[in-house]
């Protein structure tokens, strides 16, 4: 399948931000290891132009650019299981 493209919009390095990043990185290594995966972290405080273009409202916001359909997940991504369903990604190979 095509590369999974994820963009995480954060507002500065807050505990909430760190939690979101940690959860996301864990998900990528543990569950999406088989797929090519690209994660970009954008700080809206230093790059407000990006926030404006992507119409970011809440932070953290995770955007799944590809594969389509596009998805937006708001929040600090509490658990990996729920996140996987929310991202609507293919079932995980447990090999």
């Amino acid at each position: 399948m095509s590369t999974i493209v994820l963009q995480l919009f954060i507002a500065g390095r807050t505990p909430r931000t760190e939690r979101a990043i940690a959860t996301l990185q864990q998900l990528i290594t543990d569950r999406l290891g088989d797929y090519p995966c690209e994660l970009v972290i954008i700080d809206v405080i230093t790059d407000p132009q990006q926030a404006e273009e992507r119409q970011i409202f809440a932070t953290p916001t995770l955007i799944k650019e590809s594969p389509l359909p596009q998805r937006r997940i708001i929040g600090d991504l509490a658990d990996t299981e729920g996140l996987l369903t929310a991202l609507n990604l293919p079932p995980v190979s447990m090999s």
Partner: peptide, 27 residues
């Protein structure tokens, strides 16, 4: 523009704030 975007689905997972909005206003 913070009006609802019908083409993009939003799902809430965990806690968040309106930091994105604030940075856009400031900008």
């Amino acid at each position: 523009d913070v009006s609802p975007q019908p083409e993009s689905e939003e799902i809430v997972r965990g806690a968040y704030d309106l930091g994105g909005l604030l940075s856009r206003i400031t900008y």
